[in-house]
Design a protein around this nucleic acid. Structure first.
Length: 595
RNA sequence: GCGCCCUUAGCUCAGUUGGAUAGAGCAACAGCCUUCUAAGCUGUGGGUCAAUGGUUCGAAUCCAUUAGGGCGCGCCA
């Protein structure tokens, strides 16, 4: 039996349609949908089959709909089917079909909703990938959560997923980190050089002046004493310390980043170093491949329109013909001094992923990388002749708000809000859930007060509260019926005939649509849909709970009705399981009770 | 100037890839607690889906143009 009701009955609809319109094409059949109805008055599910088939059959949609409806009446489990609106067929299922969802959920446990649409396709999801030059800050947080949830979602949908972090440890930024760390090291061994004095001797100037490098400098001093400096804590020539300090600082920064990510519940499978990709020669190989395809040339770019940089002058560079793959202008692979651009290294890195056998590459990036999308897609297309897809998810900016006022972030002054600050304040689960309550391509306000509020309008609270209520009912049921009567295994076999109230059916219908929610969200790469599904599921459960306030027969536990009580307890257990299954995708822990 | 993203109720946002009368929470209004289920619940009002044109059985959704907001735009990563 298929896990998904909608797939199962869609197959019946297709059978019927083939009989009524024998010569219908497979293309058209693929467009036939069976979807949950928005309005319960329209039954449990509706199909557009007649609307699709009307044109090739040269009949009115309503007539075909009527024929389909009549034939569907013979299908097991269908209580009624009728033509409606412009040519829909509304289907109402027997209560027993919806009730049978419960044992399926209880048997599957948290794997309820697992799908095979991914067919084991190897997908690499790269996310966070911040520079290892400072603590991870809130700007990276959304990408971290979205990437992680997307990876979980694709995994649940049957893809073979790798979670990956790219360490940008090869460019000017880490050189600047090394210099700044060295400054803190000199201070740690007694130098009194201030920022201004050190800035004067630093190539490109002293950049990272935040206090977070002070302990790193002290650690260097502990490990190496004064050996990295000249006598009297004076700066030594860079050759003497640069590589050592750089590697030391990057390693410490990555430790901190990894730790912060772990606190956020994010754990990557693979960390790939830009420096290592370079050292392995993958980047050179990628450039040679592009060259062999005739896609590189020496040229001079037009100056950018509008804002002309002050120091602009025409210089020849090695350019990649990205315009042949839909980009606006060709892009430089080498700077005028002959060294690689970041783009060139990134092409090498993507080739590395491709050579590892990844079939779909997903990059989760911040909105400030928007200008980067088309060139990187062009590069992957060029390298693989279009065989590997690169998908890029841009996460728009998050504005942190407190008391209705924006919280300022200034990286330069070192006073930016770090991820660990945010986690300390509102907790991992609230951060993760809230970051998934918007589609990622829309800007978002993150209200520090609202996300911890224990009120109806806080979706984190609302969903957790539903789960806690479920658990509370199950605990009470154990008390009343004995623990062995309410185990999952025991509840799989109870009679569910008592579950016929509207609110109970509505909840069952919602649970039944979890598998197709997973498939839709995975196909669209939209993890936020899981948050909204859980909100709806919680609303249905709370509605049922509240119905019991007025109508006592709808309360879950009834002393004088063992069969009905067991049926409702099974429903509650299935609801809790569906919530847990959804929270697992989001990386949020379900709570047992609210405090 | 160009490219990408966004614009849906007073506010914050959904809208299941083109489906039926566009939804939810907050706010507003009207009710509901000596709690076996009120950190809450029930009901009501609230819309030219930024604008215009197009595509078709059917458009908030796709295309074109326009307006407003965000991000980006050769040797930063």
């Amino acid at each position: 039996m298929s896990d998904c009701l909608f797939q199962r009955y869609r197959a019946h609809v297709l059978d019927v349609l083939r009989r009524i319109v024998p010569d219908i094409s497979e293309d058209l059949l693929a467009r036939v949908e069976l979807t949950p109805t928005r309005d319960p008055a329209h039954g449990d599910m509706a199909t557009n089959a007649a609307l699709i088939a009307a044109k090739p059959a040269r009949r009115k949609p309503a007539d075909i709909a009527a024929d389909i409806a009549t034939s569907l009446l013979g299908v097991e489990g269908i209580a009624s089917a009728e033509a409606a609106g412009p040519g829909f067929v509304n289907i109402t299922l027997n209560h027993s079909v919806l009730q049978d969802v419960i044992p399926a959920v209880l048997k599957a446990g948290e794997s309820f909703g697992d799908s095979q649409i991914g067919k084991g396709t190897k997908v690499n999801v790269e996310y966070v990938s911040c520079n290892p030059t400072g603590p991870i800050h809130v700007g990276h947080c959304r990408g971290a959560v979205v990437g992680d949830a997307l990876a979980n979602l694709l995994d649940k949908a049957g893809y073979d997923v790798t979670k990956e972090f790219y360490i940008n440890d090869a460019g000017n930024q880490v050189a600047a980190l090394a210099w700044a760390t060295y400054w803190r090291y000199l201070q740690a061994i007694g130098s009194t050089m201030d920022a201004e004095a050190f800035n004067a001797i630093t190539p490109n100037g002293l950049q990272y002046q935040g206090e977070y490098l002070i302990p790193i400098g002290q650690a260097l001093a502990e490990a190496h004493g004064t050996s990295l400096a000249e006598d009297g804590a004076k700066p030594a020539p860079a050759e003497k310390w640069f590589t050592l300090v750089k590697d030391f600082a990057v390693a410490r920064m990555m430790d901190g980043i990894r730790e912060d990510l772990l606190t956020l519940g994010v754990k990557h499978d693979v960390f790939t170093s830009e420096a290592k990709v370079l050292a392995d020669g993958v980047t050179d190989r990628a450039i040679k491949m592009l060259e062999a395809k005739g896609l590189l040339y020496e040229g001079v770019l037009e100056p950018p329109k509008g804002k002309l940089p002050d120091d602009w002058e025409a210089r020849p560079q090695t350019l990649f013909r990205s315009t042949e793959f839909g980009d606006d202008v060709d892009r430089p692979l080498r700077k005028s001094d002959g060294t690689n651009t970041y783009f060139a290294n990134d092409i090498g890195y993507h080739l590395d992923k491709i050579e590892r056998g990844e079939q779909v590459l997903v990059d989760v990036l911040g909105a400030d990388h928007g200008g980067y999308v088309s060139r990187m897609k062009a590069a992957v297309k060029a390298l693989t002749d279009g065989k590997v897809a690169l998908e890029i998810l841009l996460c728009q900016i998050v504005h942190i708000v407190r008391d209705g006022q924006p919280v300022r972030m200034s990286k330069r002054a070192g006073t930016f809000v770090t991820l660990s600050d945010l986690l300390d304040e509102v907790g991992k689960d609230a951060v993760r859930f809230t970051m998934l309550t918007r589609k990622s391509d829309a800007q978002m306000e993150f209200d520090l007060d609202a996300v911890v509020a224990q009120t109806r309008d806080n979706p984190v609270f609302y969903v957790q509260y539903a789960h806690a209520r479920c658990r509370s009912v199950l605990r009470a049921a154990e008390e009343m019926l004995g623990a062995e009567a309410v185990t999952s295994a025991a509840l799989e076999t109870v009679s569910l005939k008592a579950l016929i109230a509207d609110a109970e059916i509505a909840l069952l219908r919602r649970i039944a649509s979890w598998p197709r929610t997973i498939e839709g969200a995975a196909a669209a790469r939209e993890p936020h849909r899981i948050a909204f599904y859980l909100g709806d599921l919680a609303a249905d459960f709370h509605a049922l709970w509240n119905r019991g306030r007025d109508e006592t027969t709808l309360r879950f536990l009834q002393e004088n009705d063992r069969e009905g009580t067991l049926a409702r307890v099974a429903l509650v257990a299935a609801t809790a399981m569906a919530i847990r299954s959804g929270l697992a995708v989001m990386g949020v822990e379900p709570v047992e009770e609210m405090r």
